[in-house]
Amino acid sequence: MEHIELFFKSIFIDNMVFATFLGMCSYLAVSKKVSTAVGLGAAVIFVLAVTVPVNWLLDQYILQPGALGTWLGPEYADYDLSFLSFIMFIATIATMVQLVEIVVEKFSPSLYNSLGIFLPLIAVNCAILGGSLFMQSREIPTIGLAFNYGVASGIGWFLAILAIAAIREKIRYSNVPAPLRGLGITFIITGLMAIGFMSFGGMLTGGDDAGKKEETTTAQVETVETPTVTEVTEVAVEVEDTKELANNTNVNE
């Protein structure tokens, strides 16, 4: 059950592009045609599906505080290697992307040619590293859930880039003001799409058990909205409303 919940939550509510803005550079650069967008999206799903579980294993057995103690021996239980997370994650990602490149070149040369430079650039796509970092900060408990999270985040990113590519193809026939053409209107459309995706925020807040579980398993990552509202304002009617709005979108994090 929690698999299904994590799956839908990662695609719609914590969408990598619309909720946390990961992978925006390649999102903006590749979304001019639907065909390249589809290829890149598929590659991102594949790379996320591979790297998030591998990084989960690394995190679980090497990086977390006390993790070394579980398999090397109790004298190593004091070590906390979590400061090495960045380097280890990015190293596995770079390796996996190289592997994916070799596999794609062998099994589908046409896809390899159409992706061109963007396949190696996936290694530095914030979405991939972000997927692993969010997996770590949200303390996803099992490798099955980590794989689930990787695939679902990839699907969410894929949905986003597919939608914006389709819209950008159509918008070439519209009368966009000259200074907004191209990049500017894409930003504004993406903002509007993000507002649309916020409507999914209430999707998984049903039931007391579900609410309690959300608070214990996640909520390590505090998005900026909640600290701003609680730090800066006192309890008041308009503050409650804003907090409700922010909380409703973030209650599942």
Partner: peptide, 16 residues
């Protein structure tokens, strides 16, 4: 304070 407005503000900056 919510994320989509950041996109729209950057779009407006680009416009200007």
């Amino acid at each position: 304070l919510l994320s989509p407005m950041a996109l729209i503000v950057v779009g407006i900056i680009i416009w200007v």
